[in-house]
C-alpha cells in the first residue's frame, strides 16, 4: 500500500515500486482506486478499463499490470462471483441501488475496493499465485486509516452477514505479514505532519508500516559551514566577488547580493527540511530517499526511481 498527501508523488512512487518489484519472471499488479486515472496519465496510455492490463516491463525484466478499480463494477463482480447474480445484479444497478449503497456507505465502498486487492492478491492461476506482488496506489494519508480500517467501517453497519465476513477476511490480510504500508512525504510541514498522524493511526489499528519514502530530495551544493553562514546572511561577499572574477563572470554588486540572497533562501529551506527530516527519523522507521527529478516524471525517470528502490 502506498499513501501520501496529495502532491507528494504517491502515484509515482507506487508505480516505481511496482517496476522495482518486477524482477525477471515476476508479475506485479499495480492498482488504483480513486477513479483519477493517475496511472494512465503517468504511463501515458489511454484510460485503464476495469480489466487488468499489461502496461510496462520492470528494469529487472518482469511484467507490470495495471488496474483501475471502480466500486460499482467491483460490487457487480462480487455479486456475480459469490452469489451468481448476473441478472439480479444488473437489476440492482438499474434501480440505482449499487450507486446508492456504495455512496451512502463509504465503508462498504472501501470494502469493495480493498476486496478487489484481496482477491487479486490471493488469486491462483496455473497452480501458482497470479501475481507475485500487488501494489496499491491507496487514498491519501488523510483518509488512509479509515480506508484500511474496513472492519470497523463495516462493523458499524453490518454486525453479521456475508459482507461482514468478507470485511473480516480482508482485515486479516491487511494486518498479516504480507501487507506493508509505505508513506510518501516531502520534507515540508504539512505532508510531514500528516505522515506522523497517519503512522500513529495505522499502528493503533495494528497495521504494519513498511517505510517512509522521502520524495523529491535535493542535494545541497553548500557544505554545512556555508549553510550556517548563509542562514545568518554572513556569506563573505568579497570572496564570492573574487571567485566570480576568477570564473570570468562580470561582477556587479547586484549580482553578488542576489547570489548571497539566493543562498540565504536556500539555507533557510534546508534548515526547515532538516527539522522535518528529524521528525521523520524520530519515528524509527526505514526511510528511503528519492531524488528530485527536475525534468519531470516520464517512463525513463520512473525506471530511474525503480532502480533507486532496487538499490
Amino acid at each position: 500500500m502506498v499513501t501520501g498527501k496529495g502532491g507528494t508523488g504517491k502515484t509515482t512512487v507506487a508505480a516505481a515500486m511496482a517496476l522495482a518489484l518486477a524482477e525477471q519472471g515476476k508479475r506485479i499488479l499495480l492498482v488504483e482506486v480513486e477513479g483519477r486515472q493517475g496511472l494512465a496519465q503517468l504511463f501515458d496510455i489511454p484510460p485503464l478499463p476495469y480489466v487488468e492490463t499489461r502496461i510496462a516491463q520492470g528494469p529487472g525484466g518482469g511484467e507490470v499490470f495495471a488496474l483501475a478499480v471502480d466500486a460499482e463494477a467491483a460490487l457487480l463482480e462480487y455479486l456475480d462471483m459469490y452469489y451468481h447474480l448476473g441478472r439480479a445484479g444488473k437489476a440492482l444497478d438499474k434501480v440505482g441501488a449499487i450507486d446508492f449503497v456504495t455512496t451512502i456507505a463509504p465503508g462498504l465502498r472501501d470494502v469493495l475496493l480493498t476486496g478487489k486487492v484481496y482477491e487479486a492478491t490471493r488469486r491462483k492461476s496455473h497452480g501458482r499465485l497470479a501475481y507475485d506482488a500487488v501494489v496499491l496506489d491507496a487514498p491519501p494519508t488523510g483518509r488512509i486509516a479509515r480506508f484500511l480500517n474496513v472492519n470497523h467501517e463495516v462493523a458499524d453497519l453490518a454486525k453479521v452477514g456475508p459482507i461482514r465476513n468478507q470485511a473480516d477476511a480482508i482485515m486479516g490480510m491487511l494486518r498479516s505479514d504480507v501487507t506493508r504500508i509505505h508513506l510518501v512525504t516531502l520534507l515540508e510541514e504539512m505532508p510531514v505532519q500528516e505522515t506522523l498522524d497517519a503512522v500513529e493511526h495505522l499502528e493503533e489499528l495494528d497495521l504494519r508500516i513498511g517505510s517512509i519514502v522521502v520524495n523529491m530530495v535535493r542535494n545541497s551544493p553548500l557544505d554545512d559551514e556555508a549553510i550556517a553562514l548563509a542562514v545568518k546572511e554572513k556569506l563573505p561577499a568579497a570572496e564570492i566577488s573574487r571567485g566570480l572574477r576568477a570564473a570570468g563572470v562580470a561582477v556587479s554588486k547586484g549580482l553578488v547580493d542576489t547570489l548571497v540572497a539566493e543562498a540565504h533562501d536556500h539555507a533557510v529551506r534546508i534548515g526547515l527540511e532538516r527539522e522535518n527530516r528529524d521528525r521523520i527519523d524520530a519515528l524509527g522507521k526505514q526511510v528511503t530517499e528519492l531524488a528530485l527529478q527536475p525534468e519531470g516524471i516520464d517512463h525513463g525517470t520512473l525506471i530511474d526511481l525503480a532502480e533507486e528502490f532496487r538499490r
Binding site: 551544493p221 570572496e239 564570492i240 576568477a246 570564473a247 539566493e262 543562498a263 536556500h266
Partner: peptide, 27 residues
C-alpha cells in the same frame, strides 16, 4: 563558471553558490 572554478580548485564557496543559482535558473 562553477565548473571552471572547480577545475582550477578555486573558491569552492563561489562554485557552490553558482550551482545553486544554476538550479534556480532552471526552475
Amino acid at each position: 563558471a562553477a565548473e571552471r572554478l572547480e577545475e582550477a580548485d578555486k573558491s569552492p564557496l563561489t562554485a557552490a553558490v553558482l550551482r545553486l543559482h544554476a538550479d534556480k535558473m532552471q526552475q
